[in-house]
């Protein structure tokens, strides 16, 4: 009964007929006229906008720096006063010692070898994870069979921490190097698979239909519609995956070797060299942040359309 009423309403909801005056109006959605004064005004607006953004950034930067500074001061006070209130700071080196160790290492070529080796491992593991992750994620997002086949593996393997893989990784792979790369690879793989799958699944049906009616083949639909629409989600997966990859690195580098920033950190612990532990941690954190930023930066040209949407 309600349905019938609603249908009647739908018919009467048409706009009132327009008089001759209406036709004389310019189109509502016509492109804006650009004369000189308007251009000058838009430049002015852009400058104002840029200044505001800069001020916003400067404000954020100031607060961030201040926050870090307060943290370092607290760290300093806690260690110099050997605070032991549930958390024990007696054996934690103060920031000055850490800075000292960092400066010393930055002058030592071996430290750069540690970094270089780790970066190489991450790059290899991450690249493999990207290739396999995007492929698997796409299969799982597009095909019901693919999903049924791979999803159980992903769900069961995903919660296993990197450290838990150490024994098996050593047993499975021919070299220590391969085991370490495998562990960083696993870290990156799952976020990439999951995000790719969700991105691919969420490709709007209307766009797929539009592409079909324009004559696109299945492959063309994939490249022109499904993949680009999944790209924001894939990028998030890559950025998260890069973080997790660094996160797993230390577990991998415990396995062995003589090099790598994770090995450096773990070795410092064995040698009871406390400032170096923190140096290793901070360098891992910094490299993780930089590489995640690089991933986002790399994807930026492909996501230009998204920023314009606001």
């Amino acid at each position: 009964m309600q349905k019938a009423l609603r249908e009647t309403v739908a018919y009467t909801a048409s706009p009132p007929s327009a008089g001759p005056a209406q036709a004389a109006h310019p189109p509502v959605d016509a492109p804006p006229k650009s004369d000189g004064s308007q251009a000058a005004r838009s430049v002015q607006a852009a400058v104002t906008h840029a200044l505001a953004a800069l001020r916003g950034n400067a404000y954020g930067l100031a607060v961030g720096t201040l926050g870090l500074f307060i943290g370092i001061v607290l760290w300093h006070l806690a260690t110099t006063h050997s605070v032991d209130f549930y958390v024990n700071f007696a054996n934690v080196p103060p920031p000055v010692q850490v800075l000292d160790a960092l400066i010393r290492h930055l002058q030592d070529l071996r430290f750069y070898v540690h970094i270089q080796v780790s970066v190489q491992r991450i790059a290899t593991g991450f690249l493999l994870a990207t290739l396999l992750g995007v492929l698997l994620g796409t299969l799982m997002g597009r095909s019901r069979l693919g999903r049924a086949l791979f999803y159980p593996y992903i769900e069961v393997l995903r919660p296993i921490p990197a450290v838990a893989w150490i024994p098996l990784a050593i047993l499975m792979w021919p070299t220590d190097e391969a085991s370490i790369v495998y562990i960083t690879f696993l870290g990156a793989l799952f976020p990439i698979v999951i995000n790719t799958m969700h991105g691919v699944e969420q490709a709007p049906e209307v766009l797929v239909r539009a592409a079909k009616s324009l004559g696109a083949s299945r492959m063309q639909i994939f490249w022109h519609v499904i993949f680009p629409s999944a790209l924001p989600s894939i990028t998030t997966g890559l950025a998260v995956g890069m973080g997790v990859s660094w996160f797993s690195l230390l577990a991998g580098e415990i396995i062995s070797g003589q090099y790598g920033i994770g090995y450096f950190t773990w070795n410092a612990y064995s040698l009871i060299n406390y400032p170096d532990i923190i140096v290793g941690m901070l360098v891992t954190g910094a490299l993780g942040t930089i590489s995640t930023y690089l991933v986002r930066l790399g994807a930026r040209p492909l996501l230009k359309w998204q920023r314009k949407a606001r």
């Binding site: 709007p204 209307v206 766009l207 239909r209 539009a210 592409a211 079909k212 009616s213 324009l214 004559g215 022109h224 519609v225 680009p228 629409s229 790209l231 492909l302 359309w305 998204q306 949407a309």
Partner: peptide, 20 residues
Amino acid sequence: SGPGPDRGMVFQQYSLFPWK
């Protein structure tokens, strides 16, 4: 027998490829 380029389709909204 299926969608094809001989029949152009215009949808209600949001059907342009946002990345193009």
